[in-house]
Design a protein around this nucleic acid. Structure first.
Length: 262
DNA sequence: CTTAATGTTCCCCA
DNA sequence: TTGGGGAACATTAA
């Protein structure tokens, strides 16, 4: 569920509930979401005060007065500022004012604590909304196909399946095009398309395909504006050709066979 | 019953 | 070292 725009929306909606709060108690119930000693993890954060809540790539980074929590929402994770625990609640934080729930049916998400700065975000590539065109051009000199490269979090942090498809559609680039063989003009178009798509998706509070909700439980709205993702067989908004769906790096990939060239 | 789903990681092979 | 293919993780819905 969560790519950069969704995680950004979660951070913006959850931060006001969390900043300055003290964690009174924490409970974790999944050996997948919280590998290792879950009781020890709870003890480490019990009594800590929340200093800041930020996004890095697809991670929610919660800075405590001692240590840092890095939360990845995986495919079906939700961070909610209210609600009752269910069978899918694998993290439950009692705050001095309010609660914080981590729900995740598939349990692909992770909640990790580091004594210092979040260790998990250290190896992430640059933020797509901050990288300059020059830096982007340099990094694109790779033999990899362009779509899997965009989804590689060490290459650029925050783009997933939806926004890779949408960015490639908007720049007219075929998902199987080799990154290093794209002209400078097309690289510049892609750089701009990524920025435009992510900004627009954040404005619309992300895309809700199935599970994604913000911290208040609200759906996003950007799924209504997708031009490629999830539109197999529907007409391309530019040329009318049916959008095609194939498999690229084991992920469903949507593109216009006429507008997007290799 | 089978397939696919907003993600990541690990193993194998070239 | 880089890159591609496949599997694994757990659950639900079509």
């Amino acid at each position: 569920m969560p790519e950069l725009p969704e995680v950004e929306t979660v951070v913006r909606t959850v931060a006001p509930y969390l900043i300055g709060r003290r964690i009174i108690d924490a409970r974790f119930t999944s050996k997948f979401v919280t590998p290792g000693n879950r009781a020890a993890l709870a003890e480490k954060i019990k009594g800590r005060r929340i200093v800041s809540v930020r996004r890095r790539g697809k991670f929610v980074v919660i800075e405590l007065d001692q240590g840092t929590l890095a939360i990845h929402l995986g495919m079906t994770g939700n961070l909610l500022a209210s609600g009752k625990a269910t069978g899918h609640t694998h993290g439950y934080f009692t705050l001095d004012d309010g609660v914080l729930l981590y729900n995740d049916p598939r349990q692909f998400g992770r909640i990790e604590w580091s004594p210092g700065p979040a260790k998990r975000v250290a190896k992430l590539g640059p933020e797509p909304l901050e990288i300059t065109l020059e830096e982007f051009q340099k990094r694109m000199k790779r033999k990899s196909r362009v779509k899997p490269l965009l989804m590689n979090q060490a290459f650029i942090a925050g783009i997933g399946n939806i926004y890779a498809d949408e960015s490639l559609f908007n720049s007219g680039i075929h998902p199987l095009a080799q990154a290093s063989r794209l002209s400078a003009l097309r690289v510049a178009k892609l750089h701009q398309a990524i920025r435009d798509i992510l900004h627009e998706a954040i404005e619309h509070r992300g895309s809700t395909i199935s599970d994604y909700r913000d911290a208040d439980g609200a759906c996003g709205g950007f799924q209504l504006l997708h031009k490629a993702y999830g539109r197999e067989g529907e007409p391309c908004v530019i040329c009318g050709t049916a959008i095609r769906k194939t498999l690229v790096a084991q992920r469903g990939t949507h593109y216009c066979p006429k507008c997007q060239k290799r």
